[in-house]
Simulated assay, not measured.
Amino acid sequence: MWTCPKCGRSFKNQNQGHYCGKPPETIDEYIEGQTENAQPYLREIRDAIRGALPEAEERISWSMPTFWKKYNIIQFAAAKKHVGLYPGPEAVEKFREQLKDYKTSKGTIQLPYEKPHPLELIADIARWCYEGDKEEEPDCTKE
């Protein structure tokens, strides 16, 4: 167990990333609470998603920036070496070919800080998560 020297919370992993104190209430607060290295990447990903989904509400859900309209459409979050994009398993499968240069797992795409982010692809994924290509809502990141 590791205990954060700032807030006193205990975690399984050494130097576990977390929020000391009150979690952010807005995406702006979330981004400003991240490292200086991560902030520009988070802003450009946010802008790409916002451009693709202008009607979606921005909120914090599951402690992550979230675009929402009746359900969580897509989420993203900073990690030590990458930005995690969380469009859900169906989206990762749908865009598998375009994502071949990125590490993916069920519902998650890792976008390393050292690579330019595929902003057009991110926008396409966000639109697909909202609109889907079938009659029912896509199973992206519903709460």
Rank of each mutant, 00 (worst) to 15 (best):
M1Q: 04
W2V: 06
W2P: 02
C4W: 09
K6G: 11
C7W: 09
R9E: 07
F11P: 00
N13I: 13
N13G: 01
Q14A: 13
Q14I: 14
Q16G: 06
G17M: 14
G17I: 15
H18E: 08
Y19L: 05
Y19D: 11
C20I: 14
K22S: 12
P23H: 06
P23I: 12
P23W: 01
P24W: 15
E25T: 15
I27E: 00
E29G: 09
E29C: 10
I31G: 02
E32T: 12
E32R: 12
E32P: 01
G33L: 06
G33P: 00
T35L: 06
A38I: 13
A38S: 05
Q39R: 15
Y41N: 04
L42D: 01
R43S: 06
R43E: 12
R43P: 05
E44A: 06
E44I: 14
E44R: 14
I45P: 02
I45G: 04
I45F: 13
R46M: 05
D47Y: 13
A48Y: 02
I49N: 07
I49S: 05
I49G: 02
I49A: 02
R50P: 08
G51C: 06
A52F: 06
A56W: 07
E57D: 11
E58Q: 07
E58K: 03
R59F: 07
R59G: 03
I60H: 01
S61G: 08
S61W: 10
W62S: 02
P65I: 15
F67Q: 07
W68T: 11
W68F: 15
K69S: 14
K70Q: 15
Y71V: 15
Y71N: 12
Y71C: 05
N72S: 13
I73A: 10
I73L: 14
I74W: 01
I74S: 01
A77T: 14
A78M: 08
A79K: 11
K80S: 12
K80H: 11
K81E: 15
H82L: 03
H82D: 05
V83M: 04
V83I: 15
G84F: 07
G84P: 05
G84S: 15
P87G: 09
P87K: 08
G88I: 03
G88D: 02
P89A: 13
E90T: 09
V92R: 01
V92S: 00
E93R: 08
E93L: 08
K94R: 15
K94D: 01
R96D: 13
R96C: 07
D101Y: 06
D101Q: 11
T104D: 09
S105E: 09
I109H: 08
Q110G: 10
Q110E: 06
L111C: 01
E114F: 14
K115W: 07
P116W: 00
P116F: 00
H117A: 05
E120Q: 05
L121S: 04
L121I: 15
A123H: 06
A123T: 09
D124F: 03
D124T: 05
I125E: 00
A126H: 04
R127L: 07
W128M: 03
C129S: 06
Y130P: 02
E131Y: 10
E131G: 01
G132P: 00
G132M: 03
G132E: 01
G132Y: 03
D133M: 03
K134A: 11
E135Y: 12
E137F: 11
E137S: 08
E137V: 13
P138H: 07
T141H: 04
T141Q: 06
